[in-house]
Simulated scan of single mutants.
Amino acid sequence: MADTGAKAPRERYRTQVRSEIKQHAWEQIASAGASALSLNAIAKRMGMSGPALYRYFAGRDDLLTELIRDAYRSLADTFRAAAGSGADLAGLAHALRGWALEDPQRYFLMYGTPVPGYQAPDDVTLIANEIMQVLLDACAALELRDGRAPFDEHLESHREWAAGHPAPAPVLRRALAFWTRMHGVLSLELAGHFAGMGFDAALFFESELQELTRSGT
Results as ranks from 00 to 15, higher is better:
M1H: 11
A2K: 07
A2N: 07
D3N: 05
G5Y: 14
R10I: 11
E11Q: 15
E11S: 09
Y13H: 12
S19E: 15
K22Q: 13
H24G: 03
H24A: 14
W26I: 09
Q28K: 00
I29Q: 08
S35W: 03
A36C: 05
L39R: 04
I42Q: 05
R45V: 04
R45F: 07
Y54L: 13
R55Y: 10
A58Q: 06
T65N: 07
S74G: 09
L75C: 02
L75F: 09
R80P: 01
A83N: 05
G84L: 10
S85E: 13
D88H: 05
D88W: 01
L89V: 01
L96N: 04
R97F: 11
E102F: 08
L109P: 00
G112E: 06
V115M: 08
A120G: 00
I127L: 14
Q133K: 11
L135I: 09
A138T: 06
L144K: 08
L144Q: 12
D146F: 13
P150Y: 12
H158P: 05
R159G: 03
W161M: 03
A167I: 06
V185I: 15
V185D: 07
L190S: 03
G192W: 07
H193T: 06
M197V: 06
G198M: 12
L203R: 04
F205K: 03
E211I: 09
R214H: 08
G216P: 02
